[in-house]
Design a protein around this nucleic acid. Sequence first.
DNA 1: TATTTTACCTGAGGGC
DNA 2: TGCCCTCAGGTAAAAT
Length: 297
Amino acid sequence: MPELPEVEVVRAGLAPAVTGGTVTGVTVQDERALTRHLGDGSHFDATLTGRRFVGAARRGKFLWLPIEGVDQALLVHLGMSGQMLLRAPGAAGERHERIRLDIFHPLHGELAIVFADQRTFGSLAIDTLVPTADGAAGGWGTDAPTVPQQVAHIARDPLDPAFDGSAFSARVRRKVSAIKRVLLDQTVASGIGNIYADEALWAARIHPETPAASLTPRAVIRLLLEVRAVLEKALAEGGTSFDAQYVNVNGQAGYFAHSLTAYGRQGKPCPRCGTPIVRENFMNRGSHFCPRCQRQV
DNA sequence: TATTTTACCTGAGGGC
DNA sequence: TGCCCTCAGGTAAAAT
């Protein structure tokens, strides 16, 4: 499940391969992979072919490749199961391959970027770059104060140097919803998904259904610190892979699944107190927590 | 306006 | 062996 650390691993892997590279060919096998694109496959092809990428940027779970000379970028969202794979030119088709970009890079020569996606929740798009609301850089990997239009409504992520911690705290404490729902709200803070929400709440000893507005300012700050800590640790370990759904640009899995303390560990002892971790249904997904360390207030 | 629910999608795995 | 059912969850549109 690609969340911030997984998407960052992909961005970092893509950056050296695409920066300065020119698109020499586009193959759209499945137009469902263009649900975020305004236009059909041939429009996508015509807009992208011949263009040169100048970098690879990311905010939260969105990543984009700015295009040279225009206020446009190739926008990428991996959804649940999307992969961006670097392959040799003419490489055999990948399972669930949806779109292929042929690239010529002045240093690396020819290569292919394959977008593969089992569940088709992910998609690519050509999107217009718009100024950031605060004038700071759009996200990781770029100095330009712009973001794709479809990313403009998303908050900065907790690892972004321009992330405003006090604004986050104030926003959280105005919400009546459960704190886990607020953590998953990408307009409050981006990049956090079900896995890291559960991990951060466990680390901060906060029950996922605690009303956000009932948290003290100190508790919100502690939670933010734990969110950052878990995202940074996962990033250092290459992200979380449960199955073949998340891999880096070379198709390799991450190691953070071995470091999970709550997510997916129902019935297993809490690493802190030994009480079995509980799994409950929450927002049509699983919520994992320690019923002893994370008491509902 | 703010918040919550639903639709989208495919493959793995369990039950029979 | 094979069919049916459930589950996984990020985003945006729809509903409350």
